[in-house]
Design a protein around this nucleic acid. Sequence first.
RNA 1: GCUGUGGUCGUCUAAAUAGGCUUAGGACACCAGACUUUCAAUCUGGGAAAUACGGGUUCAAAUCCCGUCCACAGUACCA
Length: 509
Amino acid sequence: MKNENIRLRFAPSPTGPLHIGGVRTALYNYLYAKKKGGTFILRIEDTDQTRYTEGAEAYIKDALAWLGMTFDEGPTAGGDYGPYRQSERKEMYAQYAKQLVDQNQAYYAFDTSEELEKARERAKERGEHSMKYDSSSRYEMRNSLTLSKEETTALLEKGENVTIRLKVPKDEIISFEDEVRGKVSFNSNELDDKVILKGDGMPTYHMANIVDDHLMKISHVVRGEEWLSSTAHHVLMYRFFNWTPPVFAHLPLILKPSGKGKLSKRDGAKFGFPVFPLLWESKDEDDYLGFREAGFLPESLLNFLLLLGWSSGDDVEKYTVDDMIAKFDLNRIIKSGARFDYDKAKWFNQQYIIESSSSYLLPLVKAELAKHTISREDDFVLRLIELMKERVELLPEFYSKSTFFFQRPTSYDEKGVRKKYKVENQNHFDALSHAVESLNSFTSLELEKLVKAYIENNELSFGAIFPVLRIATTGSMQGPDLFGTLELLGREEVLIRWKAFFQFVNPKG
RNA sequence: GCUGUGGUCGUCUAAAUAGGCUUAGGACACCAGACUUUCAAUCUGGGAAAUACGGGUUCAAAUCCCGUCCACAGUACCA
């Protein structure tokens, strides 16, 4: 059933933790591949050895695994088009770069970084905003176009500072069809002669990318908008090689919640929300919080991300992964940048928590409790989840909003006590305590029956009794169902807490 | 600067690939009411001074054209 013609790749570069924008890119690639019955591929673009970061590749895989985006081919999964790490494909690129030189569509350039920098400075002084290595300037530089054959071969043999640059033709309109933006055109005079093979023998992104996409038979390139401008170079190279280019789709950027620019890792620290899927720990910089650690369910993050840059056209907001696969399409990707809205992300999470079964939540909640060195029977935690589910947005709140289950109140809501507790009712509370003590089965249902009957028989009001019992057991005016709370706490504990409370408010009694 | 891409409520977006179905719809957030012992959830309602601005074209424009402005991206031997 596999559609061999549909092959999409997610191609991150292991320079650090995977940014949330990258996660969305992965998601769109994944969804489209699945939708079309195609193949989803993970390719690691580690051509820049200076930026290689320990642990980044593992992080990427962990993040994809957590989110359930399993890849069919990749560094660990294998596949027929490997290796899937560009550093392991180094030898393959040089021949293609040379082919372009032989075809006179690329050339050797020997300028050192320092020389280039100087040239740029000179250009700036002349009032030009920067020097472009292109059809207008290439004949003033040190390269195989300006040097004699002998000089060139000598320099090549020396092998220092040898790069290969793309020879971008003059006066041409280069256009391509983008699935989200339509026809996009560039005048080739605006394009610089990009380095395609670096001094260390590694290809640059542009080279590696199109060679691999071609060799791996990639049908659709779905990537961030920052690549739109260089796509002209890419289509040029496809033409030089006489290869059919893939379908392109450039995704809008994810913007800061407020202010200017795209979402950065600093925004996370600044506004107190995660911008990475998983916690990232690093020796030389601060740790970065992840959505997982913040208490998000992977499916809710996916749902939130899906709608940050794509819309189905109807009013549906909640999608299971299967729905996403069924409904997703490239042509409904939004063109403009999307602002990151943490409130909405939390709303999705709350919705997913409410709709999740307690047994699904069980291990997650147990893990949250374990962080506070609390360990309880599954049955207890399950009942806790039932009680708390609807009032939790983030997983850690299963602890933070229910601490009273694990600790006796150390203080009582002052205003609540003042307004609700009446000394003249103390005899009723005493009576209630006795009744609870001798109640046959200590269940939420029986407790409710008992208290309600008592109130009616004594012509009291709910408002005079319920809130007091709540404060007495939890210390607070708000919280989950009172009788459910009592049941979960257990008779012995409840009576101890009540006694303590009544002694506190009425020491003489 | 140059090139490219965008610009609908505070935010995400609908009105798509043929301009009329729009008194511009939905969701988040916000406010109020209902329900609750409380909070939450849920339901109902509310407000939004949202089509960047200015010109066209047309019987009719958020949708097409032109100009302006604004934002973002690229402008590296980084990806």
